[in-house]
Design a protein around this nucleic acid. Structure first.
Lengths: 219, 219
DNA sequence: TAGAAAGTTGACGGCGCGTCATCCGTCTGT
DNA sequence: ACAGACGGATGACGCGCCGTCAACTTTCTA
């Protein structure tokens, strides 16, 4: 692939940090921004470290002062996303007074964030082939752990029945990611509808799901 | 990475096909086998096309007569897996007379196959980092489509309530893959327990799940 | 202001990439 | 049985990406 446009460094403003430290943060951001752009344009698979460097005013050696590879850059991006959504999820779940509120808040918050965040998430899915990737970075895993902890707390508090928190967490994660991917491809992604579907499924199973088409008996 | 051992071609036996055609199939198998080995030993991410070629008695040009890249080799491997499990899933679901049998058979068949198939599936997860990959090849997608079709047939036949077959399929797929990954990491992966958990979750939601620890009321 | 420390630069050797002119073994027709 | 045509295997080649590192520049310290 080819890549020529340059991401300019942000205009320097008076800041309270030492010049060294400031430049370091700036360079890191420059690289991440350039990578976002290049990944989105060319697809993750087709992008080379050199492409990212070229989209930057920096030298190749400098890149390696910040990241080891394009994989590491991608992980850093994922970490940023995970760091952004985790507090939202925690906060949403903390307010929950019932299992349903807990589950509903989790799915709703996740879907809304992910669909909004599509600029970063979906455009990167331009993967050369039909290839799909999930990078479970430390921050992402920490998010999973938080969900499990919250479930365990819920069990202790008597909110949840004493189920296998680990498996339940995995099931929620699996549905969340798969549905997000799925509805993200639809023409009019409806985060609310997806959250409702997932919540009802987890609350009452298939037989509780909203009916469509046929005039079945009201639930 | 380095790679030196050679995968020898199988001893030629009397076969009813032309020599040309026979060699073509054989070479393809040689490459796939070498790739399996190299992926398992070095991890998918760290493997280069050259590594695969080196694990083969073939020349580099020959490799490119069969595959365009290591990604394509990996896809071919996934396709083989998908082709192997799809008939089993279909058959298992066809026998189902109730929603529960349908769901249970799907999860059980999937987990049993995946845990047995670990040689191919999990060893490859040695991805350099914590990186995880799902390749939705045509055959894999066809498997998803079959599941959706079977759900739709179930709805038509009055077995299933008229729910959103697309979302339900996605939810099942999400739970199946995530749980498989999850229990695959446990010390004693129990396909039966995982299938039971998933089935009960889909049949009656969280409140129907098997309880652990606390001496709750029997279901 | 000088010396030390930190960070940047880009040229370099090494190697993986995909190609293609050449060659070889198989097939076909007589 | 043989010759010519054909499909496919071969591996050297040019290209570009890789990560490194000695030289250089900028910032910090005293």
């Amino acid at each position: 692939m080819e890549q020529s446009e340059i991401v300019k460094p942000a205009a320097p403003r008076a800041v309270p940090a030492g010049k060294r430290e400031q430049t370091k943060l700036q360079n890191r951001q420059i690289i991440l921004e350039a990578a976002r752009k290049v990944f989105a344009e060319a697809g993750y698979g087709a992008t080379t470290v050199r492409d990212i460097i070229r989209a930057t005013p920096l030298a190749s050696g400098t890149f390696y002062n910040y990241f080891q590879s394009k994989e590491e850059v991608y992980q850093a991006m994922q970490d940023e996303t995970a760091l952004a959504i985790r507090p939202k999820l925690r906060e949403a779940r903390e307010k929950a007074g019932t299992v349903e509120e807990f589950i509903s808040a989790t799915f709703r918050t996740f879907f809304e964030f992910v669909l909004r965040d599509d600029v970063d998430v979906r455009t990167i899915r331009h993967n050369a082939d039909a290839q799909r990737m999930r990078v479970d970075t430390p921050e992402v895993i920490a998010g999973f752990d938080e969900l499990r902890e919250d479930i365990e707390k819920g069990i202790t508090a008597g909110l949840f029945p004493p189920v296998d928190a680990d498996l339940l967490m995995a099931a929620i994660v699996g549905v969340a990611f798969e549905l997000a991917e799925h509805i993200g491809r639809r023409e009019n992604p409806d985060a609310g509808a997806a959250a409702e579907f997932a919540t009802v499924l987890f609350m009452g199973g298939i037989h509780a799901l909203p009916l469509i088409g046929g005039p079945g008996p009201a639930a």
